Simulated assay, not measured.
Amino acid sequence: MLTLSSIHHIAIICSDYERSKRFYTEVLGLKIIREVYRAERQSYKLDLELNGHYVIELFSFPNPPARVSRPEACGLRHLAFGVDDIGKAAEELGKLGVEAEPIRIDEHTGRQFTFFSDPDGLPIELYQQ
């Protein structure tokens, strides 16, 4: 069996680099580690961190094909971020112009959670820790 130590990062390809860069940094508050333009691929690569941990590689490519995201398509289902206060987090999203679904309760853990989407429709979950 392979021994893994952690998740290193999640890679996301966006359709509008500047719009997604703003969303992940100004709305979600991820910090930029580095930003590189790769001329040979006509692509940006933005490395983002959360609380000192490298978490997301945001890529842009010319004319990326659409990927089915919902409902329940095979593949990556969603990203989930832990929060201390789900109500406050959902309220803050609303102030930033991002609509979250109504807060629900996880029937197995009793914890609250909600979903919203990034600019390309990628589902993102907030889960109260």
Results as ranks from 00 to 15, higher is better:
V36G: 03
P102R: 06
G97H: 09
R19I: 13
T114S: 10
T25D: 11
F115H: 04
G110K: 03
V27I: 15
K95W: 12
Y37C: 00
I33D: 13
I12Q: 05
E92W: 04
R22Y: 12
E26A: 15
S20H: 02
M1S: 13
R70G: 08
E40V: 08
G29K: 10
L28H: 06
F61N: 09
P102K: 08
D84Y: 11
L96G: 00
R41L: 13
G52I: 12
L126S: 01
P71A: 04
K95R: 11
E18N: 05
P119M: 08
E57Q: 11
F116T: 03
V68L: 14
T114H: 00
E99N: 06
S60C: 05
E101C: 03
D47E: 15
A73K: 09
C74Y: 11
Y24G: 07
C14M: 10
Y44F: 15
H9A: 04
Q112W: 10
D118V: 05
M1L: 08
E107G: 03
E40F: 13
E40R: 08
G110A: 07
H53N: 14
R77M: 05
K88I: 04
A66K: 08
P119N: 05
L48A: 07
R70K: 11
T25S: 05
P119A: 09
G87I: 01
I105W: 02
H53Q: 15
S69F: 14
K95C: 08
C74I: 09
C74S: 10
Y127S: 00
V55G: 02
N63K: 14
C14T: 15
A80Q: 08
R104A: 07
K95M: 05
H8G: 11
